[in-house]
């Protein structure tokens, strides 16, 4: 045997470390069958939808109300279920 099977020099450039990345599973918005639609007039800014959102796509600001990033929203509907004033309704995706 001429070549050793054991690699002695340290592996410098190929350390398999995963880095934080948005959308590891791709654009998860494609999974959606129902789309949450927010009525910002009804919204009382209680932040519950943002706290419970499993995908972390909902942002609530006192001035602008609720905004949802539809690129990644999976359409689970947890936000519409926890909303105390029913300001979020789920409409079927066409």
């Amino acid at each position: 045997m001429s070549k050793s099977m054991v690699r002695l020099e340290p592996i410098k450039y190929h350390v398999p470390l995963a880095r934080p990345k948005q959308g590891v599973a791709g654009k998860t918005g494609f999974w959606r069958t129902e789309k949450p639609i927010v009525d910002n007039e009804k919204c009382i800014r209680c932040y519950l939808c943002e706290i419970y959102c499993p995908v972390n796509v909902i942002r609530v600001e006192p001035e602008t109300g609720v905004t949802i990033d539809y690129d990644y929203c999976k359409g689970c509907g947890v936000c519409s279920d926890v909303c105390p004033v029913n300001a979020i309704r789920m409409v079927p995706e066409e």
């Binding site: 948005q22 959308g23 419970y52 499993p54 509907g77």
Partner: peptide, 29 residues
Amino acid sequence: PRPRPPLPYNMRDVVLPGDAACPGCPIPM
């Protein structure tokens, strides 16, 4: 201005959108 509540404001940055969880998964919550 109202004081910013820690719960929605501090939880915004670390969990990134687009993970591989099923819809409605409690783990990212």
